[in-house]
Design a protein around this nucleic acid. Structure first.
Lengths: 203, 203
DNA sequence: GCCACATGCAAGTACCCGCTTGCAGAGGTT
DNA sequence: AACCTCTGCAAGCGGGTACTTGCATGTGGC
């Protein structure tokens, strides 16, 4: 612990402080929006002095941007796609993808709602929060194109991708409002994918 | 203009003031959220003194509630359902419904986003803003039940209703984020309804 | 021992916001 | 003319908020 990586130890403390602040910001911003949350509250929740918060991030808006950036998980989508392709059978692949989409959306539901509301006032944050879903849609469009060319699906690939994602997007976003009873996740995924692939017409 | 309806003339002026304030509140709240908007700004945009705003609505929160209440159009759904039932053929009915849903959602997109972001901080407003969609889903569930009993569709009616509405909900909400090119509305409706009824599998 | 640095602490600045108040004018009613 | 109601205007109150500053403390590296 003496001379390996000069400022690593100090940095690790610094980094942990940063992370605590970012986590606190996410929690409070998600609950009340960035405008409904004071920097003092964020600092308190992070167990940090307000001055420290400003020394790290400079501005409340820069803190917001840093938060979106840190929690966007844009890279996660690639690994999901890779794991999906290891599964055989289109419907099983789509079910896997749907389940992952629900998990991902649910994890970021709070951020998405905040960014929706603040996208006009603070557009950078909006684009940042949406970066991952947009990337996901691009990859899914490519997948749909292959399915269509293979004769397994029909229609415009981009529209298919959008419809597919819409189903899960709306399921998560509107869950609290529309839900009667909460159904188990796998059953929901099964129903949605089945309807997407086969439609609602009786067979 | 002398003695018909004693305070009607005065009231009409009063009513117009109220409406101007409500419209201004909607515009600004939609742009920046209720917390991001000051009562002074609302009053200015309405061309009204701030004191007048408070004399009308008492509190900023009461203004917000009054705004949701005024713009919710909860009654519109009944007439849409009635007009839909005059059309013959399930797919044509669903296309009509989808087109109306897009129009209605687009008109209220701003309010929905505001209420989404504020539903935790101010739940009453949320329920108020969602009253109309919830009522619409109930009616649509009933419709789906009839289609299923008639053998025209299969599945759980409530789930079918939810899937159907989700498709249009997400289409409007995520339009700005996902859109490549804007497609004509009727074409979009056609594609979505067709996929809902027949699925994406080639025929 | 000394330096560099991250942090806590306390106080403060300069503004902003929701909301109130008192007064005055304008319009219509009786 | 007397009155009532709606409104504008200007000032202000109390509290909050983003952000700053100066100083003290502790910790690890040289």
């Amino acid at each position: 612990m003496t001379l390996k990586e000069p400022e690593a130890i100090a940095k690790s403390g610094v980094e942990e402080t940063r992370l605590r602040i970012l986590a606190a910001a996410r929690k409070l911003y998600a609950e009340r929006g960035s405008r409904g949350t004071t920097t003092r509250e964020v600092a308190d929740l992070a167990g940090v002095n307000e001055a420290t918060l400003f020394r790290h991030f400079g501005t409340k808006q820069q803190l917001l941007a840093a938060m979106y950036d840190h929690f966007s998980e844009a890279s996660a989508y690639v690994s999901i796609l890779e794991r999906m392709l290891e599964i055989s059978g289109m419907e099983a692949q789509l079910r896997f993808l749907g389940a992952e989409a629900i998990e991902s959306l649910r994890r970021k539901e709070d951020l998405i709602k905040v960014s929706m509301a603040e996208e006009i006032a603070f557009p950078e944050a909006g684009t940042c929060a949406w970066r991952a879903p947009v990337a996901g849609k691009l990859m899914l469009t490519e997948y749909m194109r292959e399915r269509v060319e293979a004769g397994e699906l029909q229609g415009d690939p981009e529209t298919l991708a959008r419809i597919f994602m819409s189903l899960f997007f709306a399921y998560v976003m509107a869950n609290r409002i529309w839900s009667g009873e909460e159904r188990p996740r796998d059953s929901v995924v099964q129903t949605i994918v089945d309807t997407f692939v086969n439609g609602a017409r009786p067979r």
